[in-house]
Design a protein around this nucleic acid. Structure first.
Lengths: 226, 226
DNA sequence: CACAACCTTAACCTATACTTAACATTCATC
DNA sequence: GATGAATGTTAAGTATAGGTTAAGGTTGTG
């Protein structure tokens, strides 16, 4: 039921609406956190680093549009998806919202299924490489359907964690994945494993394919290099 | 007013609507091509490889939803944005459309400004990696994603503190960073280190790249100069 | 139920990034 | 040009992240 461990922050000053949205998102398998105004939302966003933020526009202290603009100024949230939620259905508000840097604009009253469809559609884009299919990188072909790795004419059937780790690293060759990110994406947020666990799996991959492909970046994480 | 040379394909069986949309997109600076039904749309999409496709739902031969599903089956269009355009404003149709793999769903009648805002919002996301994480200053390219520094054809993998220090200084070339600021941003507020620590790291950078790039401003701090 | 495959942990080891301390040098000011 | 504060330099010490190994635990399968 886990939905790729995406984290969503819901910001609205009406507790009923927050709870209603949170309930539906959780049911869909998302990791949800909440806040009840703009300032609070920014604080929690900085702490939780959500993948998507649902922002009510009309809120006390700091309204949704201002919150969005503030978030977008911070490079940390450059890739965070932002969805406005509002009772204002007029064209001008919607244009203003989207131009403020939002990715979508949903009009109240909230229809749960529609909300989920839109949220799913947005998050689908976040990791376009992790979808089902085949991914070719250098001498590697990662076959996600069969959990198989083809490497220089040979093909290997890796254990799940090893495969997912390799798949993550090869999804963006060259990019350094932070240890935290690796834990989140391969192990999930619920399970807490020791520090050495990642190393052991990295080691197994290196044993199989040679040391040259996975590069350690000390203090940060690992990257795949071809 | 060139808009990153994004290419948009507009598919609708009503020529007036196609022309109306194409006109507005071109005015915004997009490269536009058109088709007048689903089958035609697929053919042109394969040839033109657009970044975004606007699909009418009700069309002869092959309707929008079927066209979308067909496109999504082809890996070539895995990352292509698809927007449905329709007179059907009901919730069920919208959910069905989004679940078929579309990225957005816009209800007729078309409001040009709103359409553009939504199209802009979608395309804003398309290539976030090309600008994010890379910072070019003179002969330097700081690649935050790969934790690499490219300098005059060579590329270096720096230790963490060195990298972060260089990254800070190059983030605003010419600006003098106070020693206190450097300590806060690179070392954080919790750790307290001696005065000479900064100097030592500055020295390492100067050893690597030459003395000319990092300038000491006595009594204040350091700045990067190109 | 037994076995195998896999995952996680703990303990230890290693390498290197980081810090420090001691001394040298610069540079502005008198 | 002497003086002192700020910065440069060097090498040595320390801390820490990551590597390695084997053992114990978990899971799934016949």
């Amino acid at each position: 039921m886990e939905k790729n461990n995406f984290k969503i922050l819901v910001v609205d000053d009406e507790p009923d609406i927050v709870e209603f949205i949170a309930y539906n998102l959780k049911k869909e398998g998302y990791d949800v956190c909440t806040a009840n105004d703009g300032l609070d939302g920014i604080k929690i966003a900085e702490k939780e680093k959500p993948d998507l933020i649902i922002l009510d526009i009309m809120m006390p202290r700091l309204d949704g549009v201002e919150t969005c603009e503030h978030l977008r100024r911070n490079p940390m949230f450059k890739n965070t998806l932002i969805v406005f939620l509002t009772a204002l259905g007029d064209e001008q508000s919607e244009i203003k919202g989207l131009n403020a840097g939002a990715d979508d604009y949903i009009v109240k009253p909230i229809k749960p299924k529609l909300l989920l469809s839109r949220v799913n559609a947005l998050l689908r884009r976040l990791q376009p490489t992790e979808t089902v299919g085949k991914n070719q990188i250098g001498d590697f072909i990662i076959d996600m359907e069969q959990y198989l790795v083809h490497y220089k004419t040979e093909h290997y059937s890796l254990p799940r964690k090893e495969f997912e780790l390799l798949n993550l690293l090869t999804s963006k060759p060259g990019k350094v994945f932070h240890r935290d990110d690796i834990l989140n994406k391969v192990w999930g947020t619920e399970v807490i494993v020791g520090d050495r666990t990642i190393d052991v799996h990295i080691r197994k991959l290196r044993q199989r394919f040679g040391d040259e492909h996975i590069v350690t970046v000390k203090g940060i994480g690992y990257k795949f290099d071809s």
